[in-house]
Design a binder for these strands. Structure first.
Lengths: 201, 201
DNA sequence: GTTATTACTGCACTGAGTGCAATTTAATTG
DNA sequence: CAATTAAATTGCACTCAGTGCAGTAATAAC
């Protein structure tokens, strides 16, 4: 019953948030040290100081420890797209939304996760599977911006192209080490969409 | 030590092939009847008349029962691409390779699998994850056709675009029931690549 | 303080997937 | 055909991810 400004976060929420981050940090450290497959949920729970059962109150599965952070990021992209100008080309809207949210991107953590995934085909598959959420987020934003039912198919196609471009950008960024900026990779990947589809050979 | 033409298939290989198909048929039937998640490997093995352990000599995992057939198909696409003319645009090469292998596509089984995946988000994710194999197959074919190292990035990009177009084609085909031919969907999806990336919405 | 939520824990259970040793079946050779 | 080799198949025991449940501890609200 505080009168001074709606309390934004109680002790409970803060604890939850901190524990969530703590579990993630501990897990990534263990994965880097011992590999993803050989690290069991028992070890993670023990290292994080909680029960194994309680892990599932924070993450739906072992994979989600690595990927769940992206959901929040995807949600921001969807909102950015929805708030864009409907006069611009759809692909341009998506590109700008990606670029404008890049600052919230945790590069260090992403690099660590990329390292964990290297040499683990199963994890790469799951990473790929997770891309479906990015695509749905883009589609959600685009549908809010252009709600006309007739445009559904072309918006879906734009979502597919966009998620492909983003994957390509991430790929080149990871490959070229830290010598290149992720934003440049994104710009280039979306440029490629226009170039590649009309060139001969 | 037969002299009359190299024997193409022994009893062993034929049995293996037949059992492989049989297991697949039985599994799809059970999945349709009782759902994917609720059907256990024990049930599948029992219905197929083999031991549970032996299932893993045919499929690496439960998912692979649904997806492993595509590998053979992907391999044919890779070979078709590799045998194409290097004078055509890359995207055109891929489109033709897809179209020319469409006859080998088991539409009935694909429809059944699509039905199983409907309302099962986890399976849809795994389906998406499997797309990585299609992309690798396309990339493999393209790399054989244009081995120059400098072209790697653009070929990778073409692979990404192609797998996206194929997914879109599959989506529209499944959505519009049997009223439309899959080949038409593929043609349209690749046309869209050229249209969508230059238009101003 | 008391009470209602929510967080956490332990336990027992299911089901996928693996390693291993033993057995059966098919292919090969003399 | 008999003996040998190789592959297919099986059962068993095991690990680990994930779930349901019932009970306990901590926090928020009154």
């Amino acid at each position: 019953m505080r009168q001074e400004s709606t309390k934004p976060e109680g002790l409970r929420e803060r604890n939850r948030r901190e524990k969530y981050e703590h579990i993630t940090d501990v897990s990534i450290r263990l994965f880097l040290e011992n590999g993803y497959d050989t690290t069991t949920l028992d070890e993670i729970a023990h290292s994080a100081g909680i029960s194994r059962r309680n892990l599932f109150n924070y993450f739906d599965s072992k994979d989600e420890i690595l990927f769940s952070h992206l959901r929040e990021y995807y949600e921001m992209i969807a909102e950015s797209i929805a708030r864009s100008s409907p006069d611009e080309p759809a692909l341009e809207v998506v590109r700008k939304a990606i670029l404008s949210n890049l600052t919230r991107f945790d590069a260090e953590r992403t690099l660590a996760i990329a390292k964990i995934m290297r040499n683990n085909a199963a994890l790469q598959s799951k990473n790929r599977a997770n891309e479906i959420n990015l695509e749905k987020a883009i589609m959600k934003g685009l549908s809010a911006l252009w709600p006309a039912k007739e445009s559904h198919d072309r918006l879906l196609f734009v979502s597919i192209l966009s998620s492909g471009a983003i994957r390509f950008a991430t790929y080149t960024w990871l490959r070229d080490g830290n010598e290149i900026k992720l934003s440049d990779c994104v710009v280039e990947a979306f440029d490629r969409l226009k170039l590649e589809t009309r060139c001969t050979k």
